[in-house]
Simulated assay, not measured.
Amino acid sequence: MFSGFLLSLVGIREDILRQAPSDRARYLSMGAILLATACVAAVAATFAVRMALRAPLPLALLVGIGWGVLILTLDRMMVIGMNRQKGRWRTALMVAPRIVLAVLLGAVVSTPIVLQIFDREIQAQIKVEQSKNETDYQRDLATDPAYQTIPDLETKVAELSAIASRDPAVIDRNPAVRQAQDAYDAASATLDEAAKAETCERAGWNCENSTGVEGIGEAARAAMDARQRAQEVVDQKKVILDKAKADAKAAEDINAVAAQAELQRIQPELDRLRAARDAKTIDYRAKSENSDGLAARLDALDALSAASPSINRMRWVLWATFLAIELLPVLFKLLQMSGAPTLYERLSDLADQSDERAASARIAQEENRIALARELDADRDYLEARERRRSESL
């Protein structure tokens, strides 16, 4: 049954082949070649659909089988349609279009298989390209005029948020407050030194510049007066510092209200720009993650071939191999036509001639029948017309 199927692919009549059993293996081989070529095409189409459309495997297999059937039909048509011609030029004109079509089909079939064989190397190259494209994208995004105001707006929002939050640290950074604080700290340091000197004089300790005499003497009174003056200076500086902080706080309250109003004005614009930038980035990365279809794989394979001579050689060897597989049916038929006619071909020609003579005889017989019927119709019409004239004359 299977051998009958293979012979039917090549268009062989088994009733004639039984008379030429020596040719049976040849035509079975040709049928097997046609079937193998269709299977390779089905596998290639399955790979192509998976790569290009990311289709599920059952759907890809269904499309692959359909493509294999189509290739089988085309190859069968080309093989059956190739007959011996009188003269080399007629043979060449008959064979050339079929070879061109076979080459085109072979290129289409072999490309997905070659891509699948180099899949690991291609995936690695695609990741390299995606990383490079991501770097280029970030650079272009940073220089995009539509989003160049984002860093300035972010800085401005941070400053306004600090002011609007009434952070005590902002008051401490006020120039007037810092100046008053420095003056107060200096006066406090002087007070500490004066208090230490007073303690040394009254206790009679051997401190620097002290008399070392215990009790309240002239030196102790002078030290007490110095401490008192230092305390008065500290009190004055404390009043100035408190006033500077109060003034700074009042100014910060006013600034906080203004900052809050300004923040409400520029925050929506910053949010809009950020959302647009993030949406653009999400869209780019979604496209980048899906950029591993047939075109991207071919570009990656081209890059690998340019960088590695060994991959380039292997790529074209594989491509030529699968191309040759697709060309096999036509080449096999051409080789058969270049030799002497086989016994099956001679028997088939005789059968065709016999069928043609029989068909010609049937056609001639049918033509004679039609001619006779026309003559009979003409005679009947003549007799009817003569009878009408006789009736009219009476």
Rank of each mutant, 00 (worst) to 15 (best):
N206Y: 00
E14V: 12
A361N: 11
L327T: 10
Q181V: 03
L347V: 10
A55P: 06
A220Q: 05
A164S: 13
I266F: 06
W89S: 12
L343N: 12
D292E: 14
W316I: 05
T143C: 02
A186C: 03
A295R: 15
L160T: 02
D271E: 14
R362Y: 05
Q228K: 09
R98P: 05
L376N: 13
G68D: 04
A230T: 02
V128F: 00
W316D: 05
S22D: 14
E367K: 11
I240H: 00
S310I: 10
G31F: 04
G31A: 08
S310D: 08
L59V: 15
E289S: 15
R173A: 14
A275N: 12
L35A: 15
D136P: 00
V128Q: 07
D292G: 15
S338Q: 09
P329H: 08
D182S: 13
I240Y: 00
R362P: 03
A142I: 01
S131F: 04
L35H: 08
S161P: 01
N206W: 01
R297C: 14
Y284A: 13
E14R: 14
A258K: 11
D292M: 11
T111I: 01
K86P: 06
F118P: 02
L394D: 08
I126N: 03
T342N: 02
D381H: 07
A248Y: 00
D152I: 05
V10L: 06
R346S: 14
S360N: 11
E198P: 00
K86C: 06
I171L: 02
L104K: 01
A351D: 15
L61D: 02
L53T: 05
A230P: 01
D15L: 07
M314E: 13
I370Y: 04
E392S: 12
G204P: 07
F118V: 04
V257W: 00
R386M: 13
D379S: 09
A219K: 08
R346D: 12
N83C: 06
L6W: 03
R229I: 04
T190A: 13
N368I: 07
R120Y: 07
Y147R: 05
S348T: 13
A324L: 15
R18K: 15
